[in-house]
Simulated scan of single mutants.
Amino acid sequence: MVTQLASYNDLLTHLSLIEAEYDAAHQALTASEAKNKVLATQITSLMAHTPSPNHPETLSTSPQPELTYASQVAKPAPLTGPPGPRHTTINTCNPPTNGHLVTATHAFQLPTGPQGYEYIIIPQGHKMSCTEACHSLHVLGIDTAHILDIIFPAHNHTALLVYQQYSPTLCATLKSAKVTPIEDFEFWDPKHLADPKFDNESDATKYAITMEIHHDHCIYLLIFLSANHPHIATAIGYFFAEQGWISTSDIPPSCTNPSKCSHLTNGDSDQDSMDNHMQE
C-alpha cells in the first residue's frame, strides 16, 4: 500500500512538471502569434505605399487621362538642342573637328586675304585612287576638308584643288613632310597624255585631246559640286573659265539648280576613265 502511494505521488509530481512546461510553451506561442500579427500589419502597410514594377497602375492613384491619338500628337517632342525654326539634334558623340570649327567660323566673317582657288601639283609615287590619296594626305597632317578636288592630270602627278587662303598652309605641311610641290605645271601639255592609243597622233591632236579631257573633268566636277556643295560650285565654275579651261557658257545650269544633277552624286566611273588616259 505504501509503495502504491509513493508511485501515485511520483506521477502527480511528473504531471505537475508537464503542466508547467505546457503553460510556458503556451505563453511563448501566444507571444509569437501576437508578434507575427504586428509584423504582418507592418508589411501590409508598407506594401500599400510602395508601387509595384509589374503593376503600373499602382504608380498613381489619381485618375489618368484617356489615351488617344490626338492626345499623343499634341504632346511636344523633347528638345535635344536649342529651339529654332530648323531644329536639329545635337551630336555629342562626334564633336566637330578643328577644320569644321574653322569652316563654320569663316561662314560668319567678312572675307580677308586672297580670294579664289588654285591647283597644287605634287609628285605621285604610284598609281592610286582619290580615296587612297585623301587618306595619305590625312596621315601627313593635312586637313582634307579644305581639299575640293583631287585629280591625276599626268603620270606620277596629283593635283589638289584648294582655296588660295589655305594654299600656304598646305604647301608648308607638304614641305615639312618632304613633299615638294611642282611649279609651272601645264594641264594641256601633250606630254601628259600617256594612253598608248594616242602615240601615233600629232602634237596638235594630242594637245586638243588633253584640252578635251581636262575640260570634261572640269564640267564633271561642277556637276558633282552642284549636287553636294552648291554654295561653291558656281564660284569654281568661274575660276575654271578664268583659267581658260571652260567657257562661262559651259557652266552647267545645275549649278543654280542642284536638283537636276542629284543622280550623279555617287558616280566615279566617268572620273576614273578620264584619269586613266593620263596615268597609263
Rank of each mutant, 00 (worst) to 15 (best):
L5V: 12
E19Y: 04
E19Q: 07
E21V: 02
A28F: 03
V38Q: 03
T44I: 07
S45K: 09
M47R: 12
A48I: 04
A48E: 03
A48D: 07
N54V: 11
S60W: 03
T61N: 12
Q64H: 09
T68S: 14
Q72K: 00
P76A: 04
A77V: 08
L79P: 04
T88R: 03
T88V: 12
I90H: 03
I90N: 02
N91S: 10
N91L: 06
P95K: 05
P96S: 14
H100Q: 12
L101I: 13
T103P: 01
T105R: 07
A107W: 02
L110I: 02
G113C: 01
Y119M: 04
P123R: 13
M128L: 01
A133L: 07
H135Q: 07
L137D: 02
L137A: 03
H138P: 00
V139D: 02
T144G: 08
H146Q: 10
I147G: 04
L148T: 04
L148D: 10
L148G: 04
D149F: 09
D149P: 02
D149S: 11
F152E: 05
P153A: 09
A154E: 01
N156L: 13
L161V: 11
S167D: 03
T173F: 06
T173P: 11
T173Y: 08
L174W: 11
S176A: 15
E183I: 11
K191W: 10
D195S: 14
N200Y: 06
N200M: 11
E201R: 03
I213D: 12
I213L: 15
Y220M: 15
N228K: 11
H229S: 06
A233D: 01
A235M: 13
I236R: 06
I236H: 04
F240D: 11
A241F: 05
A241D: 04
E242K: 15
Q243S: 03
I246H: 01
S249F: 08
P253C: 03
S254W: 03
E280P: 00
